[in-house]
Simulated scan of single mutants.
Amino acid sequence: MQISIIHEREVWDRFIDQSPGGTIFHKWDFLKTVEKHLGYKLLPYGFYVTDEILCAIPLFYKNIRGVKMLFSPPPQSGIPYLGFVLSRNCMNMKLSKKSQRMYEMGKVFSDEVDSLSPNYVSISLTPFITDVRPFKWNGFMIDPLYTFYFDLEQSLEDICNGFNTSKRTAVKKMDKYNMKLVESKDVKQFYNSSVDRYREQGLTFPIVSIAYLEELCQLYPCHIKVYSIMDADDNMVGGVLASEHRKVTMWIGSVKPSVKAPVNEFLFWEFIKKSKSEGYQELEMGGADVPRLCAFKSQFNPDMYVNYRIYKKDLIGSMAEWFYLNVHRKKKA
């Protein structure tokens, strides 16, 4: 097995489109937009056996004041997970052969990472990559991560019956608030309102810039959309940036509203109905890893995925991580 950079957009996107594990976040133009706005160097690697690509992974490299960092995805991109994408052929292999290929990938990948000599490596994998043993065997540490989702093959009645009492009651009383969910082209309004709501809660909106989101919406108008919740007077009281690619992901937003109306209850229920009516089988809502979000979202009785972060760090990398979490991010907040 060999590893090398893939330089052709068509080769990369064809592989991502053909793999069941490919996401909108893995698409070439999306990755190039991340590179442009966040200042990382994109390293789109492919793993080959003869001429067949068995796996691909986009890495982002940056040297900040002598600290060499390797991410997939990088901070402030808002991407929930990225990492490895396996070919359909590889995913369908019998366990013995697939395990052997994964073992080879783990070794080849570890050697390539070592050749870049980073101080810090962090890769958040998609839920499709569940066998992380090859990376553990090659010196990576493992963190389990979690995300909430709804199985939309259930009936709306069954989904609603799974809500706790307060959320079921809120759904039944929605009409009195006269709210509506509308698709919006105003990325700026969504971005500014989200920044303000995060700031009011002592938090930093985890996106590098409005220009970044605007470019992504322009590149993928059918797959990345802004939705606003409007009240009876057409005031925006909530919103979300959604990814609609193979499944619906409530990607960015749905922050705690500044009004007393059940805005997020309305948002989740409307998205469940909308996604199901459009034929999607799954709605991802995230938030399972954050205590303040988990407590709220678990009341809707979603299912939960486990995915993994693999990482390595030396002493310099550990110091840089501490500084980022305890000084840099707090200053921004």
Rank of each mutant, 00 (worst) to 15 (best):
L145N: 13
T165C: 07
S115I: 04
T126H: 07
C90V: 10
M174C: 05
M105C: 07
P74F: 00
M179C: 10
S96V: 13
I159Q: 02
G162L: 04
S124Y: 08
I79C: 04
I64H: 13
R133K: 15
M93R: 07
E157Q: 11
M174Q: 14
I79T: 03
Y61H: 10
M105V: 08
A170W: 07
R133Q: 13
F71R: 00
Q154K: 15
E183A: 07
P80E: 05
P74V: 00
L86I: 09
Q100M: 13
S72N: 01
Q76G: 04
F163Q: 05
F60E: 06
K94N: 15
K136V: 12
V187Q: 03
D131K: 04
M91A: 04
Q100W: 12
D111H: 09
P73E: 08
F163G: 03
S117T: 13
D111I: 12
L59R: 01
K107E: 15
S117Q: 12
P75W: 02
L116K: 03
V187W: 05
S110V: 06
D175T: 08
S87L: 06
K167R: 15
K136T: 12
M93W: 08
I129L: 15
D114M: 06
Q189E: 15
L54R: 01
S155W: 08
V132K: 04
C90R: 08
S99F: 04
C90H: 09
Q189N: 14
K173A: 02
M179A: 05
D175W: 07
I159F: 01
Q189W: 11
V113L: 00
C160P: 05
P73D: 07
K167F: 10
P73F: 02
